[in-house]
Design a protein around this nucleic acid. Structure first.
Lengths: 242, 242
DNA sequence: CACGATTATATGTCTAGACATATAAGTCAA
DNA sequence: TTGACTTATATGTCTAGACATATAATCGTG
């Protein structure tokens, strides 16, 4: 696990604590229900005051990643389906979090000089090379989503040598490239012949589309379109109000 | 506007500060761009330490309601598109926030004893009467969404006398009934003949569906299904990460 | 006037305490 | 076994300070 936090910028302590815990949750090392260390244990581990770890844990709680219970401790929450889809951005984690078996197939992978439409899709004026990837995710051996992705190699040169045959590009990027901002657009389309074939559904069947763009600072990292069979897949979000 | 914060429970100070500011933002008293009082001013106003107001402001910043800039102050942010769709739950506000003209038509409104399918949809075992409503929202005179709603009259008896001819039920509920929890499910379908007619699109065209359930404590308030033309409507969400 | 250096200031982070409070767990009696 | 009471403990909130840091505003200089 390559700790991609370059030592160049020094994140503050509470952010480091928060990121450490967040990573263990997102990678699945601490699964839903897992009790994370008590505040006093984290105080000892990081050698700081309780307010500092409290701030880290409070933010995780506000983000619904953990649940805090008096006297009992703090626990990893079951991923809100929304979080899984809208925030984590990793289909493998989403599927395994649901307790289903994850399957992945690379359909094609091409390294090429950026075309005009590539540049437009990535929102960059000039680009060198890009990787175009198509792949399929499945849950319990049933097609779950088809993914079309573009990675800007001038932002992520190490992606040129990554092995996307075994590891899905979303997971690889999540573990190798820090991002600062992401945008999702959700819409609905009907399946064309290619989507119908890959997802094993009828042509004209409704599909949910998530277009995601990811940036690190001013640099575009990747643009991805995920197509889900609309009758089987749902995004669920739960809110508290009042 | 029924302020439903009963004085029975005593919220903690930082939560009160946060709620005070939040209300001013949500009611529009402090519009986007408005500079909210400096920490030291709030310290004076509430007679507490800086850490306490800092906690309130930090949470508002994490929720993207305000933006904090060193030396400059804290400012109300422009509402994120996501909030408009996923959180506010009011189409009229969503459309007017986009600067478009809002139109509304009641298609039908029936008051009836709850049928078995009504009870199932509302998730209640026994129910007295319900109101079933169908209506259409439009933006700039173009159909924007069709709404199918069920209101549980045993939870909201005053809805029986509400005038849903002029005021959309979502707005009415938002202003008359406090809610504690809501769940959204987003999916994709193709337009059937009725949806196609109301939305003025082709049969078989893709549509985005949002199913929303709203509760107040243990009681179901309402279940609503919103159908948006899938090629014109999009849900956009932007996140910060890193 | 334009531009670089300085200063003032609001936020960002952190500490070492304090008391409050909800509740898991243990204790004891019916 | 069950229910009521007690206790221990982890989190929740808060304070009165401190220093760091980014930057708007000011000042000086060419």
């Amino acid at each position: 696990m390559s700790l991609a936090t370059d030592a160049a910028d020094k994140p503050t302590l509470y952010k480091r604590i928060r990121a450490d815990i967040e990573k263990r949750i997102l990678t699945g090392e601490w699964p839903p229900g897992h009790r994370i260390p008590f505040e006093h244990e984290l105080v000892a581990r990081y050698g700081c005051s309780r307010m500092t770890v409290n701030k880290a844990l409070s933010e995780l709680a506000q983000a619904d990643l953990i649940e805090r219970r008096r006297r009992a401790g703090s626990f990893v929450r079951r991923p809100q389906h929304q979080s899984a889809v809208l925030k984590i951005a990793d289909i493998r984690a989403e599927i395994t979090a649901l307790g289903r078996s994850y399957g992945y197939e690379l359909i094609h992978r091409k390294l090429r000089a950026a075309t005009a439409s590539d540049r437009e899709r990535l929102g960059v004026k000039k680009a060198g090379k890009v990787i175009a990837i198509a792949c399929r995710h499945s849950a319990d051996d049933v097609p779950f989503a088809v993914e079309d992705r573009l990675i800007d190699l001038s932002s992520v040169p190490e992606a040129a040598t990554a092995d996307f045959v075994r590891e899905p590009p979303g997971s690889w990027l999540l573990h190798h490239v820090p991002w600062t901002e992401a945008e999702h657009t959700i819409s609905a389309v009907v399946a064309d012949d290619r989507a119908a074939e890959v997802l094993d559904i009828a042509i004209g069947a409704p599909c949910l589309v998530i277009d995601r763009y990811t940036w690190r600072g001013p640099r575009t990292i990747t643009a991805v379109r995920l197509l889900y069979p609309g009758d089987s897949h749902r995004l669920v979000a739960r809110f508290k109000g009042g």
